[in-house]
Design a protein around this nucleic acid. Structure first.
Lengths: 236, 236
DNA sequence: TCTACAATTATTGTTAACAATTTTTGCAAA
DNA sequence: TTTGCAAAAATTGTTAACAATAATTGTAGA
């Protein structure tokens, strides 16, 4: 009987459907292993099956959804190797983001970054877990968007959402992932124009995040198969 | 009257259709601006329209195809800004590939790389342009695959194919893009275990490739709209 | 002769119905 | 009680027909 969420909103475009599901996965409202039944999604979005299917295809292509022929679509459950690869690749890409900021100038972007960090501190103080998760990823995305490289931003968008899946699986304790202080250190270095330090800070920040994970014990117990779709897919 | 290529091969899966179109774009048989009419593709692949459409959706998501609502799908024509972004991002990613090789060990992979370079020299000697284009991209992909980071390899696959579009638009003279000698220099550094040198060589190689382009004069004259689909999509 | 408007044509967007496959459920036998 | 098999139900895969939109072509008027 969990939230049906059958908002009859005026004809969502299929890109909006994609974005909504994407967001729900990236913000961990749809945990790894969740079944994404086409018919149910039709009800929720008030769309016909082919449109839903197209959205799922895109998510599959992104690697966020795992599609098993004649079985259906599931939110991807990353393996240990994939988890390590995500963080390694993030380090490569986010060092590049700092390079781009150096090239393009960062002084005029500091205000937006500090505003964001203030928001993170607020969420942390309030203990609003969902918001913390969302903002942690958003900080890295904000950096990438400010770096004026649409390609890097796109790539990082993918990687950040995959990181969410990784932490959902390998970090049962949801404590202090991606703290505001480490983000602040990166911004401080950028403010000082010290891009080498910023790059190092970013790199260590990501290594620290990886270290927090339990990448040995595969705790794949939390594959709850309730009907969480309705509650999870409300428009954030 | 150009080659119909109506091979009635046994039921291609949609992934195969996607791969075939992808390959044709990446190997420059379908130049930027080419119209990809759904009905024509149906004939060529012997598939129904929805299947074709799914393949085109994926390509659109990749950025290789530009989809205009109610107008159709076209091979993307990159802008100058996008061209610069592609090469900047490649430098970021391919430096990461060298890092991955350093981490993972490269000695056991040298043979494959040298075999590849020998092939490149052969193609160059024969003046086989199509093969040169294919092998140039394949070298970078080979490196990424040997680096044991599936994510980096996936990302680079995208970037290499986009590079092809960029060079198609901004390098009218098809001469000496991505020469075997520069590739050989990278491999030599890897063989010596000198990964810093390899990284620098890679970085300069990509900068050199970017310099070859004419990124001011937008020579978008070659948007030929003949029916090249039939000849271009033969299975490579 | 050129321009603007209208009708036609062509192409994409959408939906609904059908076919194939898999999982589950029920029953019987060991 | 458990295991194996068979039938039914549920879900995905595919196709075909229909609707809507945009481009083109032809015609009439200036």
């Amino acid at each position: 009987m969990g939230g049906d969420k059958q908002l009859p909103e005026t004809k969502l475009t299929e890109k909006q459907i994609y974005e909504r599901i994407w967001k729900s996965i990236a913000e961990r409202r749809l945990p790894p292993g969740t079944r994404l039944k086409e018919e149910r999604l039709c009800e929720i979005f008030g769309a016909s099956r082919p449109r839903i299917r197209r959205a799922l295809d895109q998510l599959t292509h992104d690697g966020l959804v795992c599609h098993i022929p004649n079985r259906g679509a599931f939110v991807t459950t990353p393996s240990v190797d994939e988890a390590r690869d995500v963080f390694f690749t993030r380090r490569v890409v986010e060092r590049g983001v700092i390079d781009a900021l150096k090239k393009h100038g960062a002084q005029d972007k500091l205000a937006a970054l500090e505003t964001h960090i203030a928001e993170e501190r607020e969420a942390l103080a309030e203990g609003d877990t969902a918001r913390i998760i969302r903002l942690s990823g958003a900080f890295h995305m904000l950096l990438a968007e400010l770096a004026a490289s649409p390609l890097l931003a796109d790539i990082l968008r993918d990687l950040v959402s995959k990181s969410t899946l990784v932490t959902a699986v390998f970090q049962p304790k949801c404590d202090t992932q991606c703290g505001p202080d480490e983000h602040a250190a990166i911004v401080a270095a950028l403010a000082a124009g010290d891009f080498d330090t910023a790059k190092t800070a970013m790199d260590e920040h990501l290594q620290e995040a990886e270290r927090t994970l339990k990448l040995e014990a595969s705790s794949e117990g939390n594959v709850l198969q309730d009907d969480v779709l309705g509650t999870a897919l409300s428009e954030g």
